[in-house]
């Protein structure tokens, strides 16, 4: 594990961006760029991180940075990687670089999953980081394939009959790992040294690697700005967000949670779950707890921990 002292003081993701106070994406971007091993090209899908960090004529990025569209960060990264290979062959590119693609959960779980699947299957050498704030926050909090059961969004509101999103979250890392890639991992910004190690590991892999990191969103999850890291920690400590990695198909649990907190601890700090605490919807909290327990059991079994 890296220590604080070992981290570079260089800020490649600079202050002055217009992300909200307490935004997970900004914290994740900054930590990611502190984990780099060499010059790195960033590809950014459309989303909060993109719009808030590059309002022309300003930029927060001291690295080469490319935004093309919403659904194609992995395809754009594929093109850059192939171009560098070809340019090297004819002597027009002479340095080693890494490529990182950032995309939110909408750009990854939903509209971007085809482009990502294609890039993973083709084996391009890049690291894909999905910062998951569990809804389309940039367009104003609409549900995505990553939104958890029961969460209220503007397209899965806390109705009088249907209390938030009926469906459960996709197993994103399972999907990535099924491509047979060398490295895939989950992470939480509350466990920064675990995250930085994973970025370093993902970059060192020759071929594609994926990190799925929980990203608190004060605006969309409706929590206080100063609670972001606490919520990111509770996500892990309630076993809602298992932190594990899959290396060449082998699952490994990175953060053990022997005495999990009840899921209410995670839910109650967030306005998106407030309606579930009404008497008529309390059973939904039980359903979420059951999902958490089953998911934890499934993951820990895969990790050989159960």
């Amino acid at each position: 594990m890296v220590t604080l002292k070992e981290l570079t003081v260089e800020e490649l993701f600079t202050s002055g961006h217009r992300l909200c106070a307490g935004c997970g994406a900004g914290i994740i971007a900054r930590m990611t760029l502190k984990a780099l091993r060499r010059p790195t090209i960033i590809v950014n899908a459309t989303g909060c991180l993109e719009v808030a960090s590059t309002i022309y004529p300003y930029t927060s990025w001291r690295t080469p940075w490319v935004h093309v569209a919403f659904e194609n960060a992995a395809a754009v990264a594929s093109g850059i990687e192939a171009a560098i290979k070809a340019l090297k062959k004819r002597g027009a590119w002479n340095k080693e670089v890494d490529i990182i693609a950032f995309a939110g959960d909408g750009g990854t779980f939903d509209i971007g999953i085809q482009a990502l699947s294609g890039a993973l299957e083709r084996g391009h050498d890049f690291l894909y980081i999905c910062y998951d704030n569990e809804a389309y926050m940039n367009t104003g909090i609409q549900r995505s394939g990553a939104t958890p059961h029961g969460a209220a969004t503007t397209t899965s509101p806390a109705g009088t009959k249907i209390p938030g999103k009926p469906e459960f979250k996709k197993d994103f890392i399972g999907i990535c790992a099924a491509h047979g890639i060398e490295y895939a991992a989950t992470a939480s910004p509350a466990y920064w040294n675990d995250y930085i190690r994973k970025v370093q590991r993902g970059l060192a892999v020759e071929g594609p690697a994926v990190i799925h990191v929980f990203s608190p969103c004060p605006l969309g999850m409706r929590h206080d700005s100063d609670k972001s890291i606490e919520i990111a920690r509770l996500a892990v400590q309630t076993r809602y967000w298992p932190v594990y990695e899959v290396e060449n198909g082998k699952y490994k649990l990175n953060i053990k949670v022997p005495r999990p907190k009840p899921i209410e601890e995670f839910l109650k700090l967030q306005g998106r779950f407030r309606h579930l605490f009404k008497p008529q919807f309390q059973h939904e909290i039980k359903r979420i707890q059951e999902w958490v327990d089953e998911n934890w059991k499934r993951i820990t079994e895969l990790c050989g921990e159960a």
């Binding site: 090209i41 093309v68 395809a75 754009v76 093109g79 850059i80 171009a83 590119w93």
Partner: peptide, 9 residues
């Protein structure tokens, strides 16, 4: 998309 990425490189 890949063509755009490659061209930008």
């Amino acid at each position: 998309s890949a063509c755009i990425g490659a061209s930008l490189a």
